[in-house]
Nucleic acid binder design. Structure first.
Lengths: 345, 345
DNA sequence: TCGTTTTTCTAGAACGATTTAGAAGAACGA
DNA sequence: TCGTTCTTCTAAATCGTTCTAGAAAAACGA
């Protein structure tokens, strides 16, 4: 029962440990007959094959790619956008017989060093929407683990697969400007408001670079508009709902609300429903990402090819044939019924 | 740059490797001053902390829980039901600072032993909808890795968190029987039909135990009904669509279609749309799981608490305080507009 | 002051494999 | 027949930790 190892098998068969190892890893290094005999004996002894950790240590390959998510891991699964990314990444991982290691990013004790980012046995890492400058990124860099981010970073070593955030937002901004919108509230994901009370933020307080760029893109495309940044908490329907309520109940009511993710925009849609407001007529609403639910809800949004993004990250990490280290994916403005002309004052 | 290890640091500071190890893992085993000094030197040398594989090898703990999915990994993400499970599991994993290792289950070469199930460095495993008797399960058992399945297994060692499949299906069966349905097509996930051509199956060919139980439950609750089992491929919208088309175009057209997952039922809904059939009037439709899209589509279904299922699996795997090894979760019939009285002949 | 306990640190043996270099024997060509 | 090339297998070193004892020094109680 206890401790059946390579050595045990080797002794039982009467060969050296190296040979047993070869039986598993390099079948052409030994005669077929012997290999059969080794495998049979192993089976008989209840040996389940080379130990994963030992192999990883000696050979320096873990056979797994780490995935780092913003904030709570459980949280990532509530956003179809994140799930789509994962699906694309998983597709490539599967192709290369590599596992995906989802690492929780508990910010507590990150200095102490007992986090998953420190401990995880991985060969490479995919970084999904983690704000630049996050300590976890430094840890990865320190460990010498190649990483690909979904956000353009300024660090020269970092690879990324991203979109032109500014340009994408500008497309949407132009659309809204053309419709005559001058008062816009932008809903963002923000930890400050996670307690439950919505907050209004300055551009500097936003935190995520991609969000900042989107807001700048919007502003650039609608120079005459007044943009306010509001957050109702993390990236979730409920946060969008709260943020939109805050915006709708404020003194100066906007004529358009832009969620920096469809999830947030869908939350805002709920808030409008409660108040009996019709999207596209009483108030315009737009999102980002174009998740499946967006089309069902008639939400104007900026589509990004999320699954392809996941695939591309996977290829950079795993496929030696891929030489491109930085990729800009196309985006597309999808106009639906939730956006319409600004109501005349 | 090359090979900075515990030893390097130890030598630099002038202490033994054990002490450096303790500085990281057992801070109370050495004076604070020395610890500070060690950590500082490590930083200086660019040492990123103990190597994951080496630690895993020596201590016997990998800090990760494996997740095994039916079929393609990329595939799992297209089903909100699977995603919900993952979310619940991730929640608990996060609590215990444990990573989640998603393992591809490529059936090729499973005998050869080079699969993720063989190689993965994991302490425990969650098995999601993998049919009993699958070789991967045996491998896990062989490796001595504790596992929890989402299906009731007959193996005495196996833990599980499941639902009473028969009873859950019987609830739905009674509902349909009461509505007067006598001709029912059951849509199932099946690899045989993955090529694209829908097939009609016998109960024995279904493969998945949980599906078999559901069909038996349906039959039990509607003894007078004629049940036909049809598959349009794997668990996906498109498969449901193809399976339903096959059923609707067949000689003996059913008055009700039951998808053994909401995803399959939603596919059937598409097929009905194309043909201009109104669910609940021209044809009744029901599913399983109650994913978010089901309520939006007005789909009658059997709800199961999937996130709780994930959480429970996580607790059994990770929480020593949890002693229960087998759990039956409650289910609930959710009647919506997609089911109605069978049209009079 | 002297034994006893506590704190702080170390030596050396695992952990379970893979890898490198090379030995022994078989097969081969001329 | 002899030197050469394969094929098949092995010995020993290593991968980078953590663990088990136990030693040395410091603190303690009486």
């Amino acid at each position: 029962m206890p401790g059946v190892t390579l050595k045990t098998v080797a002794k039982a068969v009467g060969v050296s440990p190296s040979t047993v190892s070869n039986a598993y890893n390099k079948p052409d290094q030994l005669s077929g007959a012997l290999r059969e005999r080794i495998l049979a004996t192993a089976q008989e002894l209840g040996y389940a094959g080379p130990d994963a950790s030992a192999r990883a240590l000696r050979s320096g390959k873990a056979g797994a790619v780490g995935v780092l998510f913003t904030d709570k891991l459980a949280y990532a699964f509530s956003d179809p956008y994140a799930v789509g990314f994962l699906a694309g990444l998983a597709e490539v991982a599967e192709e290369f017989a590599t596992s995906l290691l989802l690492m929780p990013l508990s910010s507590t004790d990150i200095a102490g060093g007992s986090t998953a980012v420190q401990q995880a046995a991985i060969d490479a890492a995919a970084i999904f929407c983690v704000p630049g400058g996050h300590p976890a990124l430094e840890i990865l860099a320190n460990r010498g683990i190649p990483a690909v981010s979904t956000d353009r970073g300024d660090h020269p070593d970092l690879s990324w697969v991203a979109i032109d955030e500014t340009e994408a937002a500008a497309q949407l901004g132009e659309h809204l400007a053309r419709l005559g919108h001058r008062d816009v509230v932008v809903l963002v994901d923000n930890a400050q408001a996670a307690g439950g009370r919505p907050v209004e933020l300055t551009l500097d307080e936003v935190g995520y670079t991609d969000c900042e760029l989107r807001i700048q893109g919007l502003q650039k495309a609608m120079p005459d508009a007044r943009l306010r940044i509001v957050s109702g908490g993390h990236n979730a329907i409920a946060s969008g709902l709260r943020g939109a309520e805050f915006a709708l109940d404020s003194q100066h009511r906007p004529t358009a609300i832009v969620g920096l993710s469809d999830i947030l925009a869908l939350g805002a849609l709920e808030a409008m429903k409660v108040r009996g407001l019709t999207p596209g007529r009483d108030l315009s609403l737009a999102g980002f990402d174009d998740i499946p639910a967006a089309s069902a809800a008639g939400l104007t949004t900026v589509r990004q090819p999320i699954k392809d993004k996941g695939r591309a990250v996977g290829r950079i990490l795993l496929d030696p044939a891929t030489t491109e280290r930085r990729l800009l994916m196309p985006t597309q403005l999808i106009v639906r019924s939730s956006s319409g002309p600004a109501p005349k004052h």
